[in-house]
Amino acid sequence: MLTLTHYLIVSAALFAMGIAGILIRRNILMILLAIELMFNAANLAFIAYARAWADLGGQIAVFFVITVAAAEVTVGLAIAILLSRQLNTLNADEVSRLKG
């Protein structure tokens, strides 16, 4: 019998892997990809809850999350291109100019 818990466990696994990606990888592109993975985990939890309680709010929330993710990726990738052009690096550890 397929229950809500099944989906939530998969969602938790995806979220944990996204966190691991952010902690392990230093490439900015890889960090952005891991963030996308975590967005997906949250979306799966939203949809599973929306189905379990027959409430449309969860699906609306996923709609907004996808929109926000698209906007975030646009600006994030523009910044990544700027970094590689101006500082010649994509390593997040080497970008420390804001420290002054």
């Binding site: 938790a12 696994a13 944990a16 966190i19 691991a20 952010i22 902690l23």
Partner: peptide, 14 residues
């Protein structure tokens, strides 16, 4: 460290 932290988070969420 990262993998351990992430696995801990997964256990907590579960």
């Amino acid at each position: 460290i990262g993998i351990t932290a992430a696995f801990g988070l997964f256990l907590i969420l579960r």
